[in-house]
Simulated scan of single mutants.
Amino acid sequence: MVGRFFYYLLNVFFTIVPLNMLFRIFPSEKRKSRDVYLASIFYAIFFLWMLPVPTAIASRYTMIFIYPFTAFNMFFFLGGSKSFKFILFCLYFNVLMLIEATSSLILSLIGLLFPRLHITGIFVAFEGNDISISLLCTIEMIVYLIIFSVVIRFISTHAYLLRLSLLISLLLPILLPMILNNIFTILSQNSLPTYIYLIPALISSFLIFRLFRHGIHLLKDSEKENAIEQHRLLTVQQEIDHLHSLDQEYQKLYVWNHDMANHLLALSLLSEQEKYDQALSYMKQLQENGGNIK
Results as ranks from 00 to 15, higher is better:
4 R>E: 05
27 P>I: 10
30 K>Q: 14
35 D>Q: 14
37 Y>D: 09
44 A>N: 01
46 F>S: 00
50 M>E: 13
61 Y>K: 04
61 Y>V: 12
62 T>P: 01
63 M>T: 01
68 P>N: 10
78 L>D: 02
78 L>M: 12
79 G>E: 11
81 S>L: 07
87 I>K: 10
89 F>H: 06
92 Y>F: 15
94 N>T: 15
95 V>R: 00
97 M>E: 04
100 E>V: 09
101 A>F: 11
102 T>N: 09
105 L>C: 02
110 I>W: 00
111 G>H: 08
112 L>V: 11
120 T>G: 08
123 F>I: 12
124 V>H: 04
134 S>Q: 05
145 L>C: 14
148 F>T: 11
150 V>N: 05
152 I>F: 04
157 T>I: 14
158 H>D: 00
159 A>H: 13
162 L>V: 12
164 L>R: 08
169 S>L: 08
170 L>M: 08
177 P>R: 11
178 M>S: 11
182 N>K: 15
183 I>E: 09
184 F>L: 10
189 Q>R: 11
193 P>E: 05
196 I>K: 06
205 S>M: 12
208 I>A: 13
213 R>N: 12
225 E>S: 09
227 A>P: 03
228 I>W: 09
228 I>P: 03
234 L>K: 15
237 Q>I: 02
240 I>T: 11
243 L>Q: 15
247 D>I: 00
248 Q>V: 04
256 W>D: 13
262 N>H: 15
262 N>K: 14
264 L>I: 11
267 L>V: 07
271 S>I: 07
272 E>P: 00
282 Y>A: 03
292 N>I: 14
292 N>Q: 11
